[in-house]
Design a protein around this nucleic acid. Structure first.
Length: 553
RNA sequence: UGCCCGAUAGUAUAAAGGUAGUACGACGGUUUUUGGUACCGUUUGUCUAGGUUCGAAUCCUGGUCGGGCAACCA
């Protein structure tokens, strides 16, 4: 409690409700439809809903909003649960809207009996036509005045499967001239002879979202039903059903969904990327899905921190990807062990180091960790791999790295001086020859020499190899959704770069699946799910900030 | 053309009628055996026009701009 963060508008509402005694316990819910994988936008909602009850007491239910059997699958239920748990949250009750189908049916009967719902045999086109437009009122359906008895009979027969799909619907009888289109006798039940992932073939009629969500909230005594802005106009209907049914008054509050630069967030578009093979799957490391971020190496802590920092408000927003990247770097900087890997190798020969000799150096694992993360052994010898970009034949201004005659420190090792280099017939540098200064060894340097640059390296004789995958933003424009034409026109052709054979220090041969590493001077990396002990595969989670790359521009 | 929601630095988000702050980004610097980290500094903002008030980002009115609403999707 060192620093008091100001409350967002939902927290203000909750504190008022708790103080006024309107509610004693806070109950929220996270209600995904199991028709896709969860993404970072869902993470915002998850952190909000679960975070609120962690902060104020009470609990959060996980409720799968499974009222549309044709799009929903158990695969999605499983992945969504795994993702929520991975993020670090646990729900009180695992519930399904389909658990309430019988109760919802009774609610519908109750409405019919009150003269507030009717069976409509209009076709979909007729319903659309008589709906009116935002500026013109709709007109009553010719079936609107059916008697209660007739409606009851028809609705029973709908349930019994006497009608084919689309033959009729159950509609709430509200007001065809309401300025709110959703109040113009909304459809509340439709016929779908489809197998449901949980109820199988028990039902052939399914409630619509509006007839299911509020009542489900009410059944669970949800005190604050939090959803995104596009549901604002649904609130009137939400309240209408609760009032007419005379059930526990849950209340709906809306906040602005997350938008992130250089990606898309709609499930429809993400599904399209998966189905069309643009990405390798829902968990492709370039996807903004929770599973994609996890595979990419993001940590739950960093995602939660991100959700905390972006805030909760009602205005449309487009968050810069750099904030998400800042959050992972911040966490990984404190927790990831430093290691050395050379991604674009060039040979360095230390001319005055004895042939065939090697020695073991000690490397500190993490200068940022409280215990420095312990140490590890790093073999050193006459021939090393270094990064091609760390040598310049004709050094630029303020170049601190290798160049003819220049000195640099080899991280954890010695200071070396570039004496010579070898080129092939095409003019490419193939080898760099250096002399080392024996008394400049890390930790026991008596040379008195100060160098500006330090570079990483791997002993050629001891190096292991690994495949390394480096990712960039999936799209070339900040907001693919709001550009002209199809969003896929703006895919970044260079969103993935694969380095088939990079050299890594031996320590990494034992890399663990869940471990994150900082490849010194390069970025943060962790093993991909494709990795095997025989063939290691690392993903770059995010690169380190690179002031030199910036300075070059 | 109707109804609803919104508008504060580049991006987000605070300020509950009383000094417009914070973070990320950008830019500059210090430290550094990672051109990383850390630290310091700089830059930029209340959509607009009126009104109420001693005083308005905040309250009121008009306008402008952005978003949502016409699925048997959620």
């Amino acid at each position: 409690m060192s620093e008091e963060r100001s409350l967002n508008f939902i927290e203000e509402i909750i504190e008022n409700d708790l103080q006024s005694g309107k509610y004693e316990t806070l109950i929220t819910r996270f209600p995904p439809e199991p028709n896709g994988y969860l993404h970072i936008g869902h993470a915002k909602a998850i952190c909000l809903n679960f975070g609120l009850t962690q902060k104020y007491g009470g609990y959060t239910n996980l409720r799968f909003d499974d009222t549309n059997p044709v799009t929903e699958k158990t695969e999605y239920v499983d992945s969504q649960q795994a993702d929520i748990r991975w993020l670090g949250f646990e729900w009180k009750n695992e519930l399904y809207t389909s658990d309430y189908f019988e109760q919802l049916y009774k609610f519908a009967v109750q409405l019919i009996e009150a003269g507030l719902a009717y069976v409509d045999h209009s076709t979909a086109e007729e319903i659309a036509q008589t709906k009116g437009t935002p500026t013109e009122p709709g007109t009553d359906s010719q079936y609107r005045s059916r008697s209660v008895a007739e409606n009851l009979d028809l609705f029973t027969r709908m349930r019994n499967g006497e009608f084919p799909d689309g033959a009729c619907t159950l509609r709430a009888k509200i007001d065809m001239s309401s300025p709110n289109m959703l109040m113009r006798d909304p459809i509340i039940y439709r016929i779908k002879h489809a197998e449901h992932h949980r109820t199988g073939n028990t039902w052939c009629i399914y409630p619509m979202y509006d007839f299911a969500h509020g009542q489900s909230d009410s059944i669970e005594s949800i005190t604050h039903s939090i959803c995104t802005l596009e549901y604002v106009s649904h609130r009137e209907l939400y309240d209408w059903f609760i009032e007419k049914l005379n059930i526990f008054p849950s209340h709906q509050y809306e906040f602005a969904r997350l938008n992130l630069t250089y990606t898309v967030m709609s499930k429809r578009k993400l599904l399209q990327l998966v189905n069309e093979g643009v990405v390798s799957g829902w968990d492709d490391p370039r996807m903004p899905t929770i599973s994609g971020l996890r595979r990419r190496g993001y940590t739950p802590e960093s995602i939660r921190e991100f959700c905390e920092r972006i805030g909760i408000a009602k205005r449309e927003n487009l968050i810069e990807l750099s904030l998400l990247e800042f959050c992972v770097r911040e966490h990984l900087n404190k927790t990831a062990n430093r290691v050395m890997a050379v991604l674009d190798p060039i040979k360095m020969v230390i001319t005055n180091y004895p042939e065939g000799q090697s020695e073991v150096l000690i490397g500190e694992n993490n200068p940022e960790a409280e215990d420095k993360g312990g140490t590890r052994e790093i073999p050193f010898s006459k021939e090393l791999w270094i990064e091609r970009e760390d040598f310049m034949e004709e050094p630029a201004k303020k170049w601190f790295r290798l160049a003819p005659g220049a000195m640099v420190r080899l991280k954890f090792a010695y200071i070396v001086k570039c004496e010579d280099f070898v080129k092939d017939e095409n003019g490419n540098v193939t080898e760099i020859h250096c002399s080392y200064i024996p008394e400049s060894k890390s930790g026991e340097d008596t040379s008195g020499i100060n160098v500006k640059g330090t570079i990483h390296w791997v002993s050629a004789a001891h190096a292991k190899t690994a495949e390394i995958r480096i990712y960039d933003r999936l799209f070339t424009v900040e907001s693919p959704d709001s550009e002209e034409g199809d969003f896929k026109d703006y895919l970044n052709p260079d969103s993935i770069k694969v380095i088939k054979e990079a050299f890594i220090e031996p320590y990494l041969a034992d890399a663990k699946q869940d471990a994150r590493y900082q490849f010194i001077r390069k970025g943060y990396y962790s093993l991909d799910t494709d990795s095997t002990p025989e063939k290691l595969v690392f993903n770059q989670t995010v690169g380190l900030k690179d002031a030199w790359a910036k300075a070059k521009k």
